[in-house]
Amino acid sequence: MRRFLVPLIAMLIFVMLWEWLVWFNEWPNYKMASPSDLGPAFWKYRILFFSFGWDTLWRTVVGLLLSIFFGVFLGMIMGFSKIIQEGLYPLLIGFNAIPKATIVPILALIFVGQHDFNTVLIAFLISFFPIAVSVSIGLSTLEPEYRDILRALGASKFTIFWKIALPKTLPEFFGALKVAVTLAFIGTNLMEIVSPHGRGLGALFDSGKTNSDYPLMFAVLIALAILGILLYYMVVFLERTFAGWADQLSR
C-alpha cells in the first residue's frame, strides 16, 4: 500500500505545484501549459497520438532489433579474435564519440524522403555500441576453464559459444540492452523532430513547437515518457525470462 501511496502523493504534489505556478503567473497557452491543459490536448489529437505513437514505437523496436543482431555479431567476432578487436575498437570508440544529433541531418539528406528508413537507421546507429562492447567483454573475459571442460571433449567453437559463452554473457547483454533501448528511443525521436514531413511523436512535438502549442508539446512529452517506460519494462521482462538465474545469484 505504502509502495503505491508515497509515489502517488509525490506526483500529485508535483502536478499541483505546476498547476499553481502557471495559474499564479497567469501564463497563456502559448507561453506554458498547465497540467489541466494536457487532457484536452490528448483528446483533441487522440488519433494522431495513437498512430504517431505506434510509428515511434515500431521504429524504435526495429532499430533496437537491428542493433541487437549487429551488436551481438560484432561483439562475438571481437570477443573471439584479438586482431579484429584491436582493429575495430578505435573505430567504434571514434564513431561512438560523435554526438548522434550531428548524424541526423546527414542521414536525412542522404536518404531524403525515406523517413521510416532514416528513423530506424538512427535508432540502430545510436544503440548498437553498448551491446557490442558488453558482448565482446563478456566473451573475452570467459574463464579458460569453462572453455576447457567442453574443448577437452572435442566440442567445436560454435558449441562452446552456444552452450557456455552466450548464456554466460546474457546478464551483461541485458544490462547493455537496458541502456540501448533508451538510446534507440532517443535516436528515433531525434530523427522525427529534425526530418521534415515526418510522422511519429517527434513530428507531433515539432508541429506543437511551430504553433507554440505548449499543451500539445507537454502532452507529447508525457506520451513519450509512457512509451519509454513501456520499452524499458519490455527489456526487463525479457531479462527476467532469459537471465533470471543471474538475478538470484546476486541476492
Binding site: 574463464e143 576453464e145 576447457d148 571442460i149 577437452a152 572435442g154 554466460k168 546474457l170 538465474w245 543471474a246
Partner: peptide, 19 residues
Amino acid sequence: QTPRSNIGMAFQNPVLLEW
C-alpha cells in the same frame, strides 16, 4: 593430437554452469 571424447576433467574451480 587433438581433444578426444574419452576424457573427463575436473579442476580446482568446479566451473558449473549457473543457468
